[in-house]
Amino acid sequence: LKGVVVAGGVLAGAVAVASFFLRNKRR
């Protein structure tokens, strides 16, 4: 169960970083 929580956190972080980079590329 702990691994699932960690994986979810990593996935959420990756999505946040990806969206951040996409926003920067638009400018």
Rank of each mutant, 00 (worst) to 15 (best):
G13I: 08
L11D: 00
V5G: 08
R27H: 14
R26M: 14
V6I: 14
K2G: 08
G9A: 08
L11K: 01
R27M: 12
K25M: 15
N24Y: 09
F21I: 10
A7L: 09
F21D: 00
L22P: 00
V15N: 00
G3P: 10
G8V: 07
N24V: 14
V4Y: 08
A14K: 03
L22V: 05
R26Q: 13
K25Q: 15
G13A: 10
V15D: 00
A7D: 02
V4R: 11
V15H: 05
A12R: 07
R23I: 15
S19P: 00
F20W: 04
V4T: 10
F20R: 06
A16L: 03
G3V: 10
V10D: 00
G13M: 06
G3F: 15
L1D: 02
A7N: 05
G3C: 08
K2W: 11
L1E: 01
L22S: 02
A7I: 12
L22H: 04
A18M: 06
V17G: 01
S19E: 08
K25E: 05
K2L: 10
G3D: 06
A7F: 10
R27V: 11
G8W: 13
G13V: 09
V10L: 13
N24P: 03
F20I: 15
G3R: 11
V15E: 00
A12M: 13
G8C: 11
N24H: 15
L22G: 02
V6F: 03
G8P: 03
A12Q: 05
F21N: 01
L22R: 05
A16V: 04
V4F: 09
A16Y: 06
A18C: 12
R27Q: 15
V10S: 03
K2D: 02
G13K: 10
V10W: 14
R26K: 13
V5S: 08
R23T: 06
A16S: 07
L22F: 10
V5W: 05
R26Y: 10
N24M: 08
A18T: 10
L11W: 08
A16Q: 06
L22Q: 03
G9T: 13
S19M: 15
A7G: 11
F20P: 00
A18Q: 01
A18N: 00
L1F: 12
